[in-house]
Design a protein around this nucleic acid. Structure first.
Lengths: 116, 116
DNA sequence: CTCATAGTACGACCGCCATCGAAGCACCTC
DNA sequence: GAGGTGCTTCGATGGCGGTCGTACTATGAG
């Protein structure tokens, strides 16, 4: 039967208008989270949670994804067993013009982003 | 006589090239420090440490000034008994293009900066 | 010299957050 | 179904940073 089982895997996202500067800066102030964001920025496609390079355990990484999502930085959705991630670049640009892009540029310049 | 007594009150500042993105973001991630930076940005002249509006004690404020100075955000110098503060706007713009200005703009937009 | 003013240094406290491992749950493949 | 993969949840831990008050130093004014 087509029971509403799929409803169990819906991910909640804040509207960017609900995100505070404080939240965003706290989110970006962590080096691991910045690695995630950088890798996402340089990727051609959306990435699943398991494909990131980071020097922490998987459960810690889950925590960081939550923080980034609640700060409006990333959007997540399920695709089979995988949980995919995208940057909310355009929305963040509207909410905090120039901020995310400046951080990303600086991050790249410093060689962050877990070089391949 | 103009003896070199003033030498005792020289403040050390890092070169902006020595400042890391991590340092800067940590510095800007604190709301009190952002209040300081915002007030400095909207001021016409340099401000002495005692003239800032902040919901913390004076000794705590001293701590925040140190963090901001070590992150290359402000420059400090003595003027009589007062210790003055300036934003290193141009240098930061060179080091992290668009970053400080974006944070300041967002801060203003959110009504931070301890309204007068 | 003496006092007042401006800020610093120090030590203590406390709360928060990044971290982990282990156990659990949802979905896909056989 | 049964098993496996992929990610989450939970509770515990540890360390760092923001906060304060008090004692202290340095400068300027009288």
């Amino acid at each position: 039967m087509a029971r509403p089982r799929a409803a169990a895997r819906i991910v909640e996202h804040p509207d960017v208008s609900e995100v505070s500067l404080q939240q965003l800066l706290e989110a970006l102030a962590d080096p691991v989270r910045r690695m995630v964001v950088s890798q996402l920025a340089r990727a051609d496609e959306d990435m699943s949670c398991g494909t990131f390079q980071a020097p922490v355990s998987l459960s810690t990484l889950t925590h960081h994804f939550n923080v980034l999502r609640e700060a409006g930085v990333i959007r997540q959705y399920y695709l089979g067993t995988a949980k995919m991630n995208t940057l909310r670049t355009d929305e963040m640009e509207q909410r905090f013009p120039g901020l995310l892009s400046a951080v990303l540029a600086a991050s790249v310049a410093e060689g962050e982003a877990g070089a391949v």
